[in-house]
Write a protein that binds this DNA or RNA. Structure first.
Lengths: 340, 340
DNA sequence: TTGAAAGCGGTACCAG
DNA sequence: CTGGTACCGCTTTCAA
């Protein structure tokens, strides 16, 4: 194939037509006779004609590439999101450029520079935990580069957003803990800058308040790097356990924090759920195999990727600049197991 | 940036030079005076000149894209491999097109067609479980498209390969089971067509033979789709458990099969390791959290991705056609936990 | 309805 | 050492 690819010129020569006619016939342009269209299309089909994408890109100033900005590919949540992104991108003939920043603001900026150099047609973005300032995205937004934020979003840039019902998810898990009879419910979350942290915290507080339970600030612990560094989680846990009234239940607000906490609690020799109950946001494959099986708030990561990509492509291909934006909120699923 | 990108022509105009001179100056071509080079480069730097990759691609017939062919992005092993691939590709300014085939031969072929259409410069390939015939790759190989196989490789196409020491890994795990005193050791693996199945089986048999234990064919079970379908694993397990002398230990030969078996065995109410011990190939994040903690053979997936990509890019950029190929074999790590 | 030709942004050959 | 120019494959305007 590769070396034997035929071009529009070959077709034109073979059929004694001009380049332009062939080009238009292939696009079913209205100003071409049925007969010619038929002829050209059949020849193209028969000779496996595929348009040269590089040439098309150069001409149209469209790369049919989508840039993906996220923190970590092997993270189970994001891996599922990518799978969803792939499914849509592929079916619409877009290509993915996936970058990971390992929660570093600096790498996020550098990756972004590379993506724009590649002249992507649009961006799918989930912010790094370190990112407080979104001006690097702002700048591109002002140049009309389509972008859709997912999971970790910002409200500073008007754009489509696809997120999980973080408030609802955290609320459901906290309420579940309350109803199970736990009295001192703590939470460990990422940086307070992140949208997901804020919302999950809100759900947590909402449940406590609703059941007339106090919200103690010392029961709320943050991991500046989202648990990328295990020591962060450890010190968060230690802070909690050293309290005069240590918590009897814990809500962990992200995959990494959930797994990390679970592991550390066990290492400290604390029994789950007797010494401390644990429920957490997690898209881990097999939380039912854990010891004890882990109560999780599961997100529909695949769907999130799918939906964000559809919104993005829609915007990329829209003739008019898009000015009204959607905020899609996907439901979470609380799966109760014996860790709570 | 996007809309304000400057081109070679802009530089030429500004400096009163010709396009070609600017182009050569930027590439530090030897026939350009130091002074001019200096001038051009400084101007380019100052105005954030970035060459248009689409134009370069079109001209050079190089896309700086690498196609990745594998079965499933969210699979923990492959997600780690991708992370390794990304790290190298990114540092060398290559772009990744990732495709997944969900173990379907048909999708593998279709994906491949799309990749070649995108005119990728090279391919990183791990075969689907359904793939017995590799002629679709063969064809591209004959057209000199560089390709490196990893993990699930074929010997029918002369190319670089990066694999795990599958024989050694399976051997170590089996030997460990033998030394623990298990007498009837079974194994569940993928299709016998796959290189990894064959090699892991070989390691399994080698250990048994070395310790003068018989190799019973009925102790070897296959999953035609690599465990993609959970029923496959279930029937494999049932076949084993219904034997007059059911096994007292199990070696599972891939991530999905390992997790699936573990889950099913628990559902059947069998105690691990008392009723049956389990050791398996797995790159799962937290096998130590399982109940009981799972003995695993871990592969260096990240390194596999890194290495395969380096070999590929080296081949892509090599002036002469590459004729001698390397077979890199990465060591495995047996981590003993209480499931055995 | 069709053809000719310019141009997208670079590269590389040929002159000078 | 530098400039002119053809060309990569396709799209699109302008003419016919």
């Amino acid at each position: 194939m590769k070396s034997e690819n035929i071009t529009i010129k070959d077709i034109a020569k073979a059929l004694n037509l001009s380049y332009s006619t062939v080009s238009r016939a292939l696009k079913s342009s209205y100003k071409i006779s049925e007969a010619t269209q038929q002829l050209v299309k059949e020849y193209a089909e028969a000779h496996h004609y595929r348009p040269n994408l590089m040439a098309q890109s150069l001409k149209n100033q469209k790369s049919r590439c989508i840039g993906v900005v996220l923190c970590s590919i092997p993270n189970s949540f994001f891996a599922e999101v990518i799978s969803g992104i792939e499914s849509v991108a592929y079916s619409k003939d877009y290509l993915l450029i996936i970058t990971q920043n390992l929660e570093s603001y600096e790498r996020e900026v550098k990756n972004l520079e590379n993506l724009t150099w590649r002249s992507v047609d649009g961006l799918l973005i989930s912010l790094s935990t370190e990112t407080k300032d979104v001006s690097h995205f702002q700048e591109l937004h002002e140049q009309r580069l389509p972008m859709v934020f997912f999971d970790r979003v910002t409200n500073e840039i008007p754009s489509h957003q696809v997120i999980t019902d973080n408030i609802g998810g955290a609320y459901a898990a906290t309420r579940h803990l309350i109803e199970r009879g736990y009295k001192r419910i703590a939470t460990i979350t990422s940086t307070p800058y992140l949208s997901i942290s804020q919302e999950r915290l809100e759900g947590y507080k909402k449940a406590l308040t609703e059941f007339n339970m106090p919200v103690h600030d010392e029961y709320i612990q943050y991991c500046p790097h989202g648990g990328m560094i295990i020591d962060e989680i450890d010190s968060a846990l230690n802070n909690l356990l050293q309290l005069p009234e240590p918590p009897d239940a814990l809500l962990t607000a992200s995959d990494r924090i959930t797994i990390g906490s679970y592991s550390l609690i066990q290492k400290k020799g604390l029994a789950i759920p007797d010494a401390i109950a644990v429920a957490g946001f997690s898209n881990f494959t097999a939380p039912e195999l854990f010891n004890p099986p882990l109560t999780t708030v599961r997100q529909n990561a695949f769907e999130m990727g799918r939906m964000a990509t559809e919104l993005l492509i829609q915007q990329v291909e829209s003739k008019r600049p898009v000015t009204s934006f959607e905020k899609k909120i996907l439901p979470t699923e609380l799966i109760v197991r014996s860790s709570t």
